[in-house]
Design a protein around this nucleic acid. Sequence first.
DNA 1: AACCCTTAGATTGTCGACAATAGTCTGATA
DNA 2: TATCAGACTATTGTCGACAATCTAAGGGTT
Lengths: 230, 230
Amino acid sequence: MNSIISPLLTTAITAADKTFYTLRTDIVEGRIAAGSKLSEAELSTKYGVSRAIIREAISRLVSCHIVERKANIGARVVALSLEGLIELYQVRESLEGMAARLAAQNMTAEQITELNALLNQHAASVKDSQSYYQEAGDVDFHYRIIIGSHNTQLITLLTEGIYHLVRMYRVQLGMAGPRVTTAFAEHQHIAQAIANRDAELAEMLMRRHITYSRQNIEHKLHSQPQKGSL
Amino acid sequence: MNSIISPLLTTAITAADKTFYTLRTDIVEGRIAAGSKLSEAELSTKYGVSRAIIREAISRLVSCHIVERKANIGARVVALSLEGLIELYQVRESLEGMAARLAAQNMTAEQITELNALLNQHAASVKDSQSYYQEAGDVDFHYRIIIGSHNTQLITLLTEGIYHLVRMYRVQLGMAGPRVTTAFAEHQHIAQAIANRDAELAEMLMRRHITYSRQNIEHKLHSQPQKGSL
DNA sequence: AACCCTTAGATTGTCGACAATAGTCTGATA
DNA sequence: TATCAGACTATTGTCGACAATCTAAGGGTT
């Protein structure tokens, strides 16, 4: 889909790495249910690796906040709630707002050109079938701005941490959000601000953009008390 | 010193946990130099545990961005640079600004009272010897606001991730920043905004507060090209 | 019947040994 | 002398086994 799933590493890939990526995908995409227990022995036979590998993979998932572990008891996939998803959106608002600000300052001319090309490409998709833009396109747009911030810490936090969490919540809570066309217009305005090197405006627009999404979720929270599949 | 170092866990503490905390402290406090290699066998004998424990501890440090690891080659403490520290301050500005905003909305009356009590206590210290406030007091103040945000994701990111990194950079780059008395005044203004439940203002003041610190560092960067002990 | 203690099973934590890979040194050849 | 091939050493990656801990079942007591 896009390069968020498997980061661009020049270094060798070990069995523990593969198991980590596989396990994470299985959880994020919902093949392993939220709240379910992760038995080391069970996963060991399932993925055909030793328990040590499984343990390392689980440890990393704990670091990502995808899994919680209690000593001598075991590891469980985190429990999902709309409140938790809202918390994540608050963090996103903060971090991606800063990313947009820094992108306006630091993006190269090429990166800006590519960002606009991406939007033009999306414009066509939006007219045809609005379905495409819903997921991959949105992720791509945000991803490029994050990378454009040129801030390593920020990039790592968002692409290796927050984004997988957000996706997990959205998939498992069944948040196939609408907001397609309006979101597209917001993306255009953000890209414009970045092209104008207007850092203040870029940050403000990005924060609003994410705030709208969050409010959209909060609205669902209040209209239908519990939607979670848990 | 304060509860950031060892989080409040009700669960049992395993040998891997202890080793992780010890190793992290040794690195953050500079007893293990930045950029140095972490030999598993060496650390195994040094801390008196098996290599498996060391490997788990290192894995966790990698997740914290304190250590970098290449497959089949080994792990090194991250290289320090003022540029990296500045990147961290940008992330802090973003996250702690949001924390202040949320704290103004969500802090309990007790928490606000305690925050003011802390500031009063500091006021005395500042008059006597300005040295105290430099480190622990500053951390305490920020810590309470982070906790006051009541956003689990935000709290974890800051207290288990960013803060140890910032401290490591500051210790090892020899950043015993001045800005003592002015910082204290800024803290007072932030606390006032939170007490008034003025979320907008609290965020703005916190962001400025951290921006000032960052600019203070950037100034050093330009005046003395390389200060790093590496 | 309710409660507590003991015991058995299963799961996690820890360890030492083996396998695989990276880096180094030697030595032969052009 | 410079360079490349190959073996050797050291370090990391992976594995299966043992130890420690938690959970549940069973029996006994009040």
